[in-house]
Amino acid sequence: MAIAKAERLMNLALCLLGTRRPLSKRELRASIEAYVEGAGGGTPANDESFNRMFERDKDDLRELGLVIETVDNLDGETGYLARRDSNRLPPVSLDAEEAAALGLAAKVWQQARLAGAANGALQKLRAAGMPVAEDAYEGQSALEPRIPAREAAFEPLMLACRDRRPVVFDYRKANAAHPESRHVEPWTLECWRGHWYLAGWDRERRAERVFRLSRITGRVRSRSAAFTAEIPDHVTVRETVESWAGENATSRARIRIRAGAGYPLRARACSTRAAGEGWDELEVPYGHGLGAWLAEFGPDVVVLAPAELRADVLERLRAVAKG
């Protein structure tokens, strides 16, 4: 939001909150400098431009949560005010368990802007006298919650999802030697098995797509255009990724994996046995997308069966090697 508009909205909110009686458009126009000068400043706003500006500002304040009342027949004019009792939040009251849960949740975010927001929220609760204890569960468990957000693409995509702004980025698929440009309307971000994924509408492919953030190369560029596709009520990010990784598989694949490597694969293995010479043999669920996942482990994984999976992984590795 431009500084000039933010200042104008703040002044309008203060006028509406500070008055004891409804104020007409005429009175608000005379009280707020930006309405006198116009949106750009320096040029007085005519009646038409003022009315458009005022209606937009009023709608924006209501969208931000300000309760603005409209009073008719005020000397023939419509009046506006924002009563303080209608715009005051109830006192925050937390019991010990709720306060401890908030303290624990605030420790989850350690990267990006969310870490600052979480810490700021705790400070405000403490200032209000809430017993928020970050160490409420200290000593009870050796585990501490963390959601990593190390990818450079995370923050710009998080903001683009929030602001509903299309983005452009270069994306390299697992079996591709070079990245391709993607034009996406971002819907939501979700973390699954330690990796972040973006779900959105791919404009060029005219279909819903899911992108793994670690495969985004270069800078994420945002665009000011509006979304062209409707955002679904429920975006199945996790279900889509699970199907790629073979989570819903009904058959099994046999792979050989280097000792000390591939812990995510070992965690999903149906059976494991030592194969000798520094290798182990695993049986893992086999479904769509398993080949792309296995290719990411490079020389640490060798597919034994089935033959079509082995061919798929070899094709992907050759494509990367050619690049």
Rank of each mutant, 00 (worst) to 15 (best):
R8S: 12
M10S: 09
M10Y: 03
L16V: 02
L16W: 00
T19Q: 05
S24A: 10
K25M: 08
R26T: 13
E37I: 01
G40I: 01
T43W: 02
P44H: 08
S49M: 11
F54C: 06
E55N: 15
D57T: 01
D59K: 12
S86R: 01
V92Q: 04
S93Q: 12
A96G: 00
E97V: 10
E97F: 08
L102D: 02
L104F: 07
A105N: 01
Q110A: 11
L122C: 08
M130W: 00
A133K: 09
E134Q: 10
A136R: 06
E138N: 01
G139H: 10
S141W: 03
A142S: 04
E144Q: 11
E155F: 10
L157N: 02
A160L: 11
C161I: 11
C161N: 02
P166S: 07
N175M: 08
A176V: 02
A176C: 09
E180V: 08
H183V: 10
L189I: 06
C191V: 08
W192Q: 09
W196V: 04
A199C: 12
A199E: 12
G200A: 10
D202C: 15
R205V: 10
R206Y: 13
E208V: 14
G218S: 10
G218E: 13
R219S: 13
S222R: 14
A225V: 09
I231A: 12
I231H: 06
V235R: 06
V235P: 02
T236D: 15
S243I: 04
G246V: 05
R252Y: 05
R256S: 15
I257D: 11
A259I: 06
A261R: 13
G262M: 11
Y263V: 06
P264L: 14
A269Q: 09
T272F: 05
R273M: 14
E277I: 02
G289E: 05
A295V: 05
F297Y: 15
G298R: 13
P299S: 13
V301Q: 05
V301L: 08
V303S: 06
L309C: 05
L314K: 00
E315L: 14
A319Q: 07
A321Y: 09
A321K: 12
